[in-house]
């Protein structure tokens, strides 16, 4: 007699994946991989075509077509290989992202934020109340009551 398979209820199905071996990839993940593979091959072939037909190159277009085809085939048929390739590119992307963040944000810090600090110092603004307290009786600050319900719709 065949073993009866237990059917998980709606809650358990969401939080406990003991029936799904190793947390199998969801259809949406597979779909995303295939789309990525397709986008890659379209870009690769377009560039190869441009180089071959408009610029007259031969070696580079062959290389691009080969690499694009291999990666797309991996996306379709060998997901583990595709994951590795993708992880490699993601690491590269992360590194470039960090470098770019430094290139863009550091100058901003030393221009905008340092200048703002100087302006605040000149105007005597002590937003964080970092100066030694004087003889204030209390440090509690009064709040205005909320009268308008639209306050809750705003992100500020």
């Amino acid at each position: 007699m065949a073993e009866e398979i237990y059917r998980q209820n709606r809650v358990s199905d969401v939080v406990w994946h003991w029936q799904k071996e190793g947390g199998a990839p969801t259809p949406s993940t597979r779909k995303a991989e295939i789309i990525k593979g397709l986008v890659g091959i379209v870009i690769g072939y377009s560039i190869a075509a441009f180089l071959y037909f408009k610029k007259g190159h031969t070696g580079m277009p062959v290389f691009i077509v080969s690499v694009s085809t291999i990666i797309t085939c991996c996306a379709f048929f060998i997901p583990p290989a595709f994951h590795r390739i993708e992880a490699g590119f993601n690491r590269l992307a992360h590194g470039v992202g960090v470098a770019l963040a430094y290139i863009l944000l550091v100058p901003l810090f030393y221009t905008f934020f340092v200048c703002s600090h100087a302006c605040m110092a000149v105007m005597g603004i002590d937003k964080l109340k970092l100066k030694k307290p004087a003889n204030e009786e209390t440090f509690w600050e009064e709040r205005d009551p909320i009268t308008d319900k639209s306050y809750y719709r705003k992100q500020f």
Partner: peptide, 30 residues
Amino acid sequence: WLIPLVLILLAFGILMGVTQTTLPFIYTMF
């Protein structure tokens, strides 16, 4: 002061986002 700062930060954000999303396809530029 918030307006120019946010616009700059968003522009940076978009630039970083675009770079990071297009990087996986960088092999096609070889």
